[in-house]
Design a protein around this nucleic acid. Structure first.
Length: 613
DNA sequence: GCCGTTTTCGGCCCGACTGTTTTCAGTCG
């Protein structure tokens, strides 16, 4: 875990303890916010001095001091004080859905409940019913939540969640009376994992007033064959658990990841999906609202207030400081049909969903021209049947050409990757000849000979320099020794970045999302070296990897170093993962120019040759 | 505990839903 992640967890723990101790909610919020800011920071917080820390929005003098204390000692006195006052088994219960800090505090202070065992015991003997606001229904819900808790909060990888979202949206669009349908939430923002899916559907304004037209849309949603459990059911709002397809992926991505998922009514991995139905005039407001992020929304609403307006999921309204919400009183909204109208009314440029994280998007003067899938003109990391790919050189190239690419590079594994059928030097030399021979068979695209060369544990490369020099493209990637100490990993990767024959550092950390954390190098040092040595850092687009991850890609963009988005193609379908890599780059604020795969052929080929002199 | 095109003190986003309540507290997104 990185230093930033450790800090984020520490402040999150402080906030949770404060809540259980009944401390001021605004102080709690300040710590929660600090935790989020630290977790999203693109630079290593432990490298920042107090003055720099204070420049970060959401970090003031007190929290800055605590950050410094944590970095030097590994904890804080405040945490120790708070932690000593709360039973150790209490904190995990905050994860139980529907059980919040206020209720948990009451259970503890008035009911003597200190952990899951004593909570279950007090439910079993009925003593919990004597506590305030604890009726039969609440207790039954709580009992069910305890059983479901383990299965619900696992976040699902973007590449598994998004196809489900698209599938449900398509189904909803086909339903009578539906005008528009879209998915929102963190899937729309392109986060590497999502907690749940938010599906938004609109009907015409007239239809929306007719319950007999709206209710069947919700009913259809709840009746989909993949629904395993209905969590809430209303006319305009429903929640379900949707079964994930346990298909066999390259990494067996869905196999046995929710060991507790087979308890109760749920079979196999599931994802929660929420549906909201709104009238067409509110679709933009609702889309913005459910896309979030939460912090971005808070900022938007504060901005609306400062401009004499109030913003909710139904629209942007003049603020008349009335008690009842404006949409219930028939107030005409200033904006709401489209997201664009809301940003415009708040005197903001349109902010793309991927950067709605309340980082610096409110300082923008114009909509940034973030990179798009259409900008990508080359795939620089692809495997064939020579190592562990499924396609021949010809098929690989034809597929790339069909996507409008001007260049495809064949980068099979190097000799140390025995499990991936890595090429010996002799086989590599033959393979280069085969690649050259293939050029005549697939005109209209440049086929380059390369290799995905293992970066060995000590930072040396898997082929000698005289062999690497024969290749048009060298992608150097770590595949083994992925549990190295950060300092060792940094030195190892720096060696590869500075190697004069290396073009691209492939999947720099080697992480597999929800599977293994990978290396934790000093990313600022890698980025600085990449810029100095004119080496590109890869965003590996496979949804299991997304490596670089968003915040590191952002740091790369901010430093002015080069990125390369690659699908790491093993089979034809892998080309479709490009969208996840592009979403990650967009979250980083990347424009096309900073990604070498967008460059025209002449420019890209010339750049590759700069490492061959 | 943070922050400032009303403010260095006094604020700090909005609505739906649920269950427990006779008017609201708590949770969630």
């Amino acid at each position: 875990m990185s230093a930033n992640d450790r800090l984020a967890r520490h402040f999150e723990a402080i906030a949770n303890l404060m809540q259980l101790l009944g401390e001021d909610g605004f102080r709690v919020n300040a710590h929660t916010r600090a935790a989020r800011v630290l977790g999203d920071l693109s630079t290593d917080a432990s490298s920042l001095d107090r003055k720099t820390l204070l420049e970060i929005e959401g970090i003031g003098p007190k929290i800055a001091d605590k950050i410094i204390e944590f970095i030097s000692s590994g904890s804080t006195a405040e945490f120790a004080d708070l932690n000593a006052k709360v039973p150790p088994g209490l904190l995990p219960l905050l994860e139980v859905p529907g059980l919040g800090p206020k209720t948990l505090r009451t259970l503890w202070t008035e009911g003597g409940i200190v952990d899951e065992a004593s909570l279950r015991a007090s439910i079993a003997d009925g003593s919990i019913l004597k506590l305030p606001r604890m009726g039969a229904k609440s207790v039954e819900k709580l009992r069910q939540s305890l059983d479901f808790a383990r299965t619900v909060h696992a976040r699902i990888r973007l590449g598994q969640a998004m196809p489900i979202a698209e599938h449900i949206v398509a189904r909803m669009k086909a339903q009578k009376g539906v005008v528009r349908a879209a998915f929102a939430g963190s899937a729309r923002r392109g986060r590497d994992t999502v907690g749940d899916l938010d599906i938004l559907v609109s009907t015409s304004d007239a239809d929306f007033k007719n319950e007999a037209l709206v209710a069947p849309i919700s009913a259809l949603f709840r009746a989909m064959p993949e629904v395993r459990h209905v969590l809430a059911s209303g006319d305009t709002r429903s929640s379900i658990q949707f079964a994930l397809n346990a298909e066999d992926q390259r990494w067996g991505a869905t196999e046995s990841e929710n060991p507790d998922a087979n308890k109760g009514q749920v079979k196999g991995p599931v994802i929660q999906v929420d549906l909201r139905i709104v009238p067409e005039c509110s679709f933009g407001a609702a889309l913005a609202y459910f896309t979030g992020s939460k912090d971005h929304n808070v900022h938007m609403r504060e901005r609306a207030l400062s401009m004499g307006m109030t913003l909710n999921e139904y629209g942007l309204y003049p603020d008349d400081s009335s008690e009842e919400p404006p949409h219930k009183r028939g107030v005409t909204p200033v904006a709401g049909t489209t997201e664009e109208s809301i940003f415009a009314a708040l005197k903001l440029p349109y902010i793309p969903p991927e950067i709605r994280e309340d980082h610096s998007e409110f300082n923008l003067n114009a909509t940034p021209t973030l990179i798009t899938i259409a900008d990508i003109k080359a795939e620089l990391h692809a495997h064939t049947t020579a190592s562990d790919g499924r396609m021949s050189i010809i098929e690989l190239a034809e597929r790339a050409k069909a996507r409008g690419f001007h260049t495809i590079t064949v980068t099979d594994h190097s000799r140390s990757s025995a499990q991936a059928n890595g090429l010996s030097i002799e086989r590599l030399l033959e393979h280069i000849d085969s690649i050259h021979a293939a050029r005549a068979q697939v005109p209209g695209i440049t086929i380059l000979a390369g290799s995905e060369v293992d970066i060995l544990a000590d930072g040396s490369l898997d082929y000698p320099d005289e062999i690497l020099a024969k290749l048009d493209v060298v992608v150097a990637s770590p595949h083994t020794a992925l549990s190295q100490e950060p300092a060792t990993a940094t030195a190892r990767l720096l060696k590869a970045i500075m190697h004069p024959l290396v073009h691209i550092l492939g999947h720099p950390t080697g992480r597999l999302i929800n599977r293994r954390p990978g290396l934790e190098p000093d990313m600022a040092a890698l980025i600085a070296a990449a810029k100095k040595n004119n080496t590109a850092l890869e965003i590996n687009a496979h949804w299991m990897r997304l490596d670089l991850r968003d915040v590191h890609a952002r740091a790369t963009v901010e430093a002015g170093a080069l990125l390369s988005i690659n699908c790491d193609v093993h089979e034809a379908e892998d080309y479709d993962n490009l969208k996840y890599g592009v979403l990650t780059a967009r979250r980083a604020g990347a424009v096309a120019e900073s990604v070498i795969n967008t460059w025209p052929a002449e420019k890209l080929h010339a750049w590759l040759k700069t490492k061959r002199r």
